[in-house]
Design a protein around this nucleic acid. Sequence first.
DNA 1: CTGCATCCGTTATGATACTG
DNA 2: CAGTATCATAACGGATGCAG
Lengths: 113, 113
Amino acid sequence: MATLNRPGADDGHICGIDTAMEVIGGKWKVLILWALHEQPHRRFGELRRLVPGITEKVLASHLREMEADGVVDRVSYEEVPPRVEYALTKDGIRLNDALEPLAAWGRERVSGP
Amino acid sequence: MATLNRPGADDGHICGIDTAMEVIGGKWKVLILWALHEQPHRRFGELRRLVPGITEKVLASHLREMEADGVVDRVSYEEVPPRVEYALTKDGIRLNDALEPLAAWGRERVSGP
DNA sequence: CTGCATCCGTTATGATACTG
DNA sequence: CAGTATCATAACGGATGCAG
């Protein structure tokens, strides 16, 4: 290959990582993925508590993006009070699995080799 | 565990991924890593060509950050004209390896399952 | 050749208040 | 409960010019 390529170029993804980076690019997305990985069918309020520091606005927009990216499923139950549940899609689960080695790297880095 | 945690919190990194995300958080860092993985001891100008679209300022600042994070080694030869070479550290190599499953995920996503 | 300084626009993230 | 609207700020990236 002559050069590496940016997202959006014809091929764009010689190493494929940029594709993934676009999906997990939000500041809190990996934590959301992680929370949904531990237990599927989390409600909005649960996620808000599980990811301390995140605002409702950012949580909502991240969830919408992840839904659009096909890694998260959103199920809205038409009841009162409202109930909405989020879960990983199959692709989201695979994404989370692919993140595990990275998590291991981070853990080693914190605790030392 | 009660909650997930942000970087900087006491534990901070229950899943360890946020640690890694901080290191690869720059827009072009994974591409720089990739370029250095293919062949160590790249020069500044080489990297600029290998990562089309990146500006000198951003390349320089990314390299400095990655050096501070201990994933890149910088070797400056005191000659004229100046020559500076960059290479992955051991930790950088392991990081790149940890990125591979993510790259695979991205590749599948582009080409279809 | 390497790469820092400055200015500047865009995007991402945050705080707060409000609605169905 | 599950969001949306609005306003404000910060972080990031890009363009250009200059220096060792």
